[in-house]
Design a protein around this nucleic acid. Structure first.
Length: 495
RNA sequence: GGGCCGCUAGCUCAGUCGGUAGAGCAUCGCCCUUUUAAGGCGUGGGUCCCGGGUUCGAGUCCCGGGCGGCUCACCA
């Protein structure tokens, strides 16, 4: 438990003890400043030094000391609050002997409340000429060095609080994330959608093809699955008459971790009665353009050096068109299962099961040959029913689902369909999934009897969509890894 | 899970052929009352990720392990 502490912490603990010996609480409560850094900087932006001498008002600001430069009898410090940073000038002559002694006890990292008047330095920086100050919280740990910041990726993720202090760009990413979610919420609510919350613990995992996390409820003595998707619950709500619903929340999938995958990730799902997946394409374009405009002020974004244009309309291709036009595949594989299998084998694809039909094989070939090439926003539709157990069959081809996925920068970012609302067809599809599960496909879906019952009560014609929020935020913030847009990404236990 | 790379002071990083553990910033002390990576002089600070092995001697070479990054496979 008791680790040996380094010299720096010992030095600062000694200062803490000194404050306490003097009867000064180093962790006082309240301590409200009159202004934020930004209040002051924007209000007096255009005042030159002369104009500021006429501003006799006292200002107080509070924040963390992030910069310190001393000159014997005077010093410059910078305080950082939620709005920004402001420089303060502490002068022996202005604060007197006693306060100047307390100034000497301050460390970079401490929180301070300072008050004084405004002035401009020789170099023109708007600063606070301090007449009084108070330590508001003592820091014992040293902050990372100022111009390289914190570079150790592991420490950045494990101690995000240090990352946020040391690397200003990180704060901007999470601000953009918050704005993204808010923009989506506003967009949907303006279209008469109702935001809901559905269970995170499911007795039957459903709504996606994925391996779940399993947990246990002691009193009920029952295993529960952390949800892999909210889909089946949201559609139950549409059955119940909530014709337009959405949820922005976490999904959990017990699968690999990568630059694009975190075990828990945030998904938007929304459902619209009397909608079709074609209409959702248009809605998605509008949503992305709207969100980009609100977050970035424009509809183009440079992601990892590639300019992505989010202004509608987006390219639309069927999977089969994409296979030939984007993937450069032999058109013969589209209808000939033997040729498709051979083609897949040539690509090094190992088929999940021997029972896969042509549709599933083509989907795998699509993923191998096309996905990575779809840089600009592209809707892929015409997915096989075989790989779409919750989507409605097309009226023109019963083997094709009324479904699309949206690809941007080679990544799947949205998945939508006109929902399957025929309870008998849904029951048959669940049976097929349950059989695959029994045969060892641990990502196949479970049979959800109550969901079929819900459909028997009647689900109006409905379209639904899921959008990966983390990936959308990655795109908007030019973040190379999903860990850069999740505050506390999953890591192994240390030790 | 496989492959490749990384882990050295609080932080960012050097460390040659195996031969006393280094720098910058930060700390601490002194000088300095308008700095913008301030400046000057001085000072302290190390479980070289962990455990074995080889060797007279290991941060360095070998083996095993840990954590992280990238990548392949799986997935959103």
């Amino acid at each position: 438990m008791s680790e040996e502490e380094n010299q720096y912490i010992q030095q600062r603990r000694a200062k803490l003890a000194e404050y306490r010996a003097l009867g000064i609480n180093p962790f006082p409560r309240g301590m409200k400043p009159t202004h934020t850094a930004r209040d002051i900087l924007t209000t007096y932006e255009s005042h030159d030094g002369d104009a500021l001498t006429k501003v006799t008002q006292n200002f107080s600001v509070a924040g963390r000391i992030v910069f310190h430069r001393a000159f014997g009898k005077a010093a410059f410090l910078k305080l950082r609050d939620r709005s920004g940073e402001i420089q303060i000038y502490i002068q022996h002559q202005a604060v007197g002997d006693e306060l100047f002694k307390f100034y000497k006890m301050l460390d970079v990292g401490d929180f301070l409340l300072a008050e004084g008047t405004l002035f401009r330095t020789k170099t023109g920086e708007l600063s606070l000429h301090v007449t009084g100050f108070r330590l508001t919280s003592k820091a014992l740990q040293l902050l990372p060095e100022k111009w390289h910041g914190l570079a150790d990726v592991e420490q950045r993720y494990r101690q995000r609080y240090v990352d946020l202090i040391a690397n200003p760009k990180v704060k901007e990413i999470f601000r953009a994330r918050s704005q993204t979610v808010q923009a989506i919420r506003d967009f949907l609510i303006a279209r008469d959608f109702l935001e809901v919350e559905t269970p995170m613990m499911h007795p039957i995992p459903g709504g996606a093809a994925a391996k779940p996390f399993i947990t246990h409820h002691n009193k009920l003595d029952m295993d529960l699955y952390l949800r892999i998707a909210p889909e089946l619950y949201l559609k139950r709500l549409v059955v119940g008459g909530l014709e337009r619903v959405f949820e922005i929340n976490r999904n959990f999938r017990n699968e690999g971790i990568s630059i694009q995958h975190n075990p828990e990730f945030t998904m938007l799902e929304f459902y619209q009665a009397y909608g079709t997946h074609e209409e959702l394409m248009e809605l998605t374009e509008q949503m992305f353009a709207d969100v980009a405009t609100k977050v970035l002020g424009k509809t183009t974004v440079t992601y990892q050096g590639t300019e992505i244009n989010l202004a509608p309309p987006y390219r639309k291709l069927t999977m089969k068109e994409a296979l030939v036009e984007v993937g450069g595949c032999d058109p013969a594989i589209l209808t000939d299962k033997k040729k498709a299998v051979a083609y897949a084998a040539k690509l090094g694809d190992t088929l999940k099961t021997k029972n896969e039909g042509l549709g599933a094989i083509l989907t795998e070939i699509f993923e191998l040959t096309c996905e990575k090439k779809l840089m600009q926003p592209t809707f892929i539709h015409g997915y096989p029913v075989e790989v779409s157990p919750l989507a409605r069959r097309s009226d023109t081809d019963p083997e094709i689902a009324d479904r699309f996925e949206l690809y941007i920068y080679g990544r799947e970012i949205a998945n939508a369909f006109t929902e399957l609302n025929d309870p008998e067809d849904q029951a048959a599809r669940f049976h097929a999934q349950a059989e695959a599960l029994f045969k060892g496909d641990d990502e196949a879906m479970h049979y959800d009897d109550d969901y079929v019952t819900a459909l028997e009560y009647g689900l109006p014609p409905t379209a639904g969509e899921g959008i990966g929020i983390d990936r959308l935020v990655m795109l908007l913030t030019d973040a190379p890894s999903i860990r850069d847009v999740i505050l506390f990404p999953q890591l192994r236990k240390k030790e």
